[in-house]
Nucleic acid binder design. Sequence first.
RNA 1: GUGGAAGUAGCUCAGUUGGAUAGAGCAUCGGAUUGUGGCUCCGAAGGUCGAGGGUUCGAAUCUCUUCUUCCACCCCA
Length: 457
Amino acid sequence: MSNTEKTQVKKIIEPRTLKGFRDFIPEAMIPREKLIERVTNVYRSYGFCPIDTPVLEYLEILMGKGSEETDKQLYRFKDSGGREVGMRFDLTVPFARFAAQHFAELGVPFKRYHLAKVWRGENTQAGRYREFMQCDFDTIGTTSVVSDIETAFVINDILEKVDLRTDDAFTKFKVHVNSRKILNGALEKLGLSEQATPVLRALDKLAKIGADAVVAEMAETAGATEEQARSILEIACAMGANVEILERLEAALQGSELGLQGVAELRQILDATREAGIPTERFLVDVSIARGLDYYTGTIFETFLDEIPQLGSVCSGGRYDNLAELYTKQKLPGIGASLGLDRLFAGLEELGMVEKKATTVDVFIPLFDAQLTNRYVALGRGLRQRGIGVEIYPEPKKLGQQLKYADKKGFKLALVLGSDEVARGVANLKDLRSGGQQEVALELEALVRAIYDALQA
RNA sequence: GUGGAAGUAGCUCAGUUGGAUAGAGCAUCGGAUUGUGGCUCCGAAGGUCGAGGGUUCGAAUCUCUUCUUCCACCCCA
């Protein structure tokens, strides 16, 4: 190697991505898009409509809610015009701004979904990144329990569709439901309303750290007495069938109008899911889930995969009284939830529910004989117009090598066409999974029919 | 942000007490096989040993700094 060549080699910039940011190769992106498509279809089937908002917002919009944590995690900078801007760290805050700005033209109730990337400058961990996708859906402008019910349905329907290998319903998940009204009612009765945030934050960790540690944390961060803490836990730990838990809660919350209202709402949601034919074990009343965010005021949802609960919630949400209070005097109550696509996807991969494929079409046409190139491209186009995706190999390599490529990428069928076949007016349709092949008349309609039949099999 | 562990080929990893030109399997590309993939055999290509400094006659190996990844905490999807 000459010196000049060496210098040039040194000039190569190391290809790399930022910590917590990822590339997606086709094998990862194809199933990801499939999941996105399924999620979107569920949203649309309930009448949710798509919106989008800018990646960058004025810093004051994003910092409005200003908890210390979000401030630290916010990607912020000055743009070239000297404006203080930030990248959205969730889709709820931009939606609140959006709703405040446009509610007059949109009208209520308004149902939107929003699938987009968000950014948080926090430390990475398995299934946790600095750039990740959220899939929010919200219904605003109504306090009707119908919205709570349909939110529960949507969560259920999405999760049923996550097995990407098949169209069959996935069933190994649980939606934990609770109501902030129940929690607040209980806190009220115990005289802990003032310390709601630290108490609930501690309670939220129950499954993870155990009862004693929760009591200790409540004492430390909220100044709760052991008796108060134990009472909260007693209510939160209610085990058994949903109906029993609700009955016990009802008894424990006598005198708290708010708490009883929460119980009644949960009861109505559960009744509705049962009547709609959703398996009753799918939804669990779980008074220990509290959610970190303090803007929730009613029903709360968290969703766990049965086989990997330690992954955390893959779809969470709840009801709030006033989404956009920072940006408008108009009161906008609503309910919504967010699917953590990247976390869910990490779980699906772990469970082997992601089909590996590196092609977006099923049919492969090798460039067997360069003399027949125009024949191949015309045939490919004809099939595409009939709804069959086709890829044509661009180079006249040996047939074996072309088929090897097709095999590796995961094509299902190869349409082999050489001068022999053309002379005889046929094409060879090869099934790449079984290895079998059949001759089909070299005529578009016959080929379309044969391909559809082969793909069904 | 805090604490712990680890970074050697695209991936998984070996590399002895500090010693010569850093290895294997899988994957990639080519050949055996000019009309048929998966199996087999042969070959090729692929390395700033994460990066930068220090100790040393000599560093993948020891040391410091830094970056990255993983785990736990915090918080969250």
